[in-house]
Simulated scan of single mutants.
Amino acid sequence: MKSIAVLGLGKVGALAAQLLVDSDFTVIGVDSMADPAKFSHDVRAIDVKDADALAEIFDGVDAVLSCLPYHLNIGVSNVAHAAGIHYFDLTEDVPTTNHIRNLAVTSQGLMAPQCGLAPGFVGIVGANLIAQFDECRSCRMRVGALPQNPTGLMGYAFNWSPEGVVNEYLNDCEVIEDGERKWVSAMEWREQIYIEGLQLEAFTTSGGLGTMCETYLGKVANLDYKTMRYPGHFDLMNFFFHELLMRENREEAGRILVHAKPPVDQDIVYVHVAAEGLIDGKMSRKEFVNGYKPLMIAGESRTAIAWTTAGSVVSVIELVREGQLPSKGFLKQEDIPLPALLSTRTGSFYNRKD
């Protein structure tokens, strides 16, 4: 794998493309709105919903990374499958992932959705902790992408795709509870979490576990994923979506929220993963807790949500190129070794303390 097309050159896609260039890949960026003069690689302006135009680009590359809104990924994955190339994306959408998984049965290349932060990096961390136990009774995964300096009652800024956030807040969530695989509503099971004395609240959101419930059913008694926010956010978003009925118009909900709480440059991504169980007959607890801030990468300051998301998928792509991951079929995030990911050129960013 030497060449890759990156679809969507927003903050995450543009950074992923640059990281791939820095890791010696030949990159073709695809974005109808991008200014080619701002990039160090080839950029094409095409309609990503045009299957023929995509097929022409895919004919000249070994892989594609989609950094597009989740609802476009089914079409992209179909074209990638037909072209016989590797496919990677960042989606948290469960139906999209199920579609890609079905394609993987007959794929010539690797089909690897859910390679971002959550699902993605957090699942790799969770699997690493679970593997340390002789018997694991619970694994709780929490991620919060937040402004460092929150304002207002909501305490939030939309540094991530509004479509993705609204989707996560409204779609049902898969969990394992007391050994039973089940679906629960989003924005439930609220709890308090403290990270270095900072109080946060966490609640269920969809898609963060990827395929982990299937993998760990019968092996881990309790498994769930929640999003972390500053206190007060939960009640306001429940009011917005359910009492004001904005759940009935997701596109308009996303527009209103981004207009009210635009992106910020100074953000922070908290990752809190904790597992409990038996090691050598004794009850133990293992934790992975970090707060990631913006980094200088390729001469520019990159937001925490951008580099933690782009860094995860590019690290996975590096591992596939190096032969440390399969080159065909469907890739589960929990099958990716955390030490191997952190040892890649891009994965080493997770160890930086800038």
Results as ranks from 00 to 15, higher is better:
residue 4 I to T: 01
residue 11 K to R: 13
residue 14 A to S: 15
residue 17 A to V: 09
residue 18 Q to P: 03
residue 19 L to Q: 10
residue 25 F to Q: 06
residue 32 S to G: 07
residue 35 D to C: 04
residue 35 D to H: 14
residue 45 A to V: 02
residue 47 D to G: 11
residue 49 K to E: 14
residue 50 D to Y: 10
residue 51 A to W: 10
residue 54 L to Q: 09
residue 63 A to S: 14
residue 69 P to M: 07
residue 69 P to K: 05
residue 85 I to F: 08
residue 97 T to Y: 13
residue 100 I to W: 03
residue 100 I to N: 13
residue 104 A to M: 03
residue 112 A to Y: 08
residue 122 V to Q: 05
residue 123 G to K: 00
residue 126 G to M: 08
residue 129 L to G: 10
residue 134 D to E: 11
residue 144 G to S: 05
residue 148 Q to N: 08
residue 151 T to H: 09
residue 159 N to M: 12
residue 160 W to S: 15
residue 163 E to T: 11
residue 163 E to R: 11
residue 164 G to W: 00
residue 166 V to K: 04
residue 167 N to W: 09
residue 167 N to M: 09
residue 168 E to A: 15
residue 170 L to F: 06
residue 170 L to S: 09
residue 183 W to Y: 10
residue 184 V to C: 11
residue 186 A to D: 05
residue 187 M to T: 04
residue 187 M to N: 07
residue 190 R to G: 00
residue 193 I to Q: 11
residue 194 Y to I: 02
residue 196 E to T: 08
residue 197 G to I: 03
residue 203 F to R: 06
residue 204 T to Q: 12
residue 205 T to W: 05
residue 206 S to G: 12
residue 212 M to D: 10
residue 214 E to C: 01
residue 225 Y to L: 07
residue 227 T to G: 13
residue 228 M to W: 10
residue 230 Y to D: 00
residue 232 G to C: 02
residue 235 D to F: 12
residue 239 F to T: 01
residue 240 F to M: 06
residue 241 F to Y: 14
residue 241 F to D: 01
residue 244 L to P: 07
residue 244 L to A: 12
residue 256 I to A: 07
residue 264 V to S: 10
residue 266 Q to V: 00
residue 268 I to Q: 14
residue 270 Y to L: 10
residue 272 H to T: 11
residue 273 V to K: 02
residue 275 A to D: 03
residue 285 R to K: 15
residue 291 G to F: 06
residue 296 M to G: 01
residue 297 I to R: 00
residue 299 G to A: 02
residue 301 S to H: 10
residue 305 I to P: 05
residue 308 T to E: 00
residue 310 A to Y: 11
residue 321 R to S: 05
residue 324 Q to H: 13
residue 325 L to I: 09
residue 329 G to N: 05
residue 341 L to D: 05
residue 342 L to G: 04
residue 344 T to S: 09
